[in-house]
């Protein structure tokens, strides 16, 4: 079932992205972008990232793309205007793009991720303790698994506020056994409180800056007229 869903979402995401590249009309590009981004949101849901998927839908699809279409409407000089590229440019970009895709895809598919995961865990053990006194099994090194721990909203929220439920304070489970790398580690990290604050200030700056740009241009228009 989830495999079928994955295939559908993956095809829609890739196909939408391809159509964005291939179509000439900007509003059609926006439509295909919506298809692609919504399918990526679907992939996020499949990966158990419900909050990230919802954010993707709300901010990207609902916000950014509407903003882009709004921009198209404000700037298009005629109905369904298209600005075409040179055919030679398109061919060049197509060839380079295919080569790049082949490179990236073959790299991604040739790496043995699980083995790297195990090696990374060993390296972490070395770094933390200087000696391998307890080799952790790869099973206990799994990432955040929503099937075990429900939804991600609370943990994400607390992570942004500086407390990591999934890492800090990870308590011993019922039978007393520790998860591999977390034994005795009860330091509280700052989580993502500082980046969160920086991003909020950044958003404010962008808001003021964009409003200033929009205002400045209107003043020039009035002076010219």
């Amino acid at each position: 079932m989830s495999t079928v869903l994955f295939v559908i979402y993956a095809l829609a995401a890739s196909g939408g992205a391809l159509a964005v590249v291939l179509s000439q009309n900007v509003v059609r590009m926006a439509f295909w972008l919506v298809i692609s981004l919504s399918s990526v949101a679907g992939l996020f849901f499949l990966l158990g990232a419900d909050f990230v998927g919802a954010t993707q839908l709300l901010i990207y699809v609902g916000g950014t793309v509407v903003l882009l279409i709004f921009g198209v409407m404000l700037t298009s000089s005629g109905p369904y205007g298209t600005i075409k590229s040179q055919p030679a440019e398109v061919v060049q970009a197509g060839i380079i793009g295919m080569a790049f895709l082949a490179l990236v895809a073959s790299t991604v598919l040739s790496v043995n991720w699980e083995a790297n995961e195990v090696r990374l865990a060993h390296a972490n053990d070395h770094a933390e303790h200087g000696h391998v006194h307890e080799v952790s099994e790869p099973e206990s090194e799994q990432g955040y698994n929503p099937e075990e721990s429900g939804n991600t909203t609370r943990s994400l929220g607390t992570a942004l506020l500086g407390v990591r439920f999934d890492k800090d304070l990870s308590l011993e489970s019922e039978d007393g056994s520790n998860h591999g790398h977390t034994h005795g580690n009860h330091e509280v990290s700052a989580g993502y409180l500082l980046p969160f604050e920086i991003v909020s200030v950044h958003l404010l700056v962008v808001l003021v800056g964009a409003a200033y740009l929009a205002r400045a241009k209107r003043r020039v228009d009035v002076e010219n007229a």
Partner: peptide, 15 residues
């Protein structure tokens, strides 16, 4: 997000 699900970094990728 995919690395957050399959890797060992917990929620870091999602954040």
């Amino acid at each position: 997000v995919a690395f957050s699900r399959y890797g060992s970094l917990g929620l870091d990728g999602q954040v």
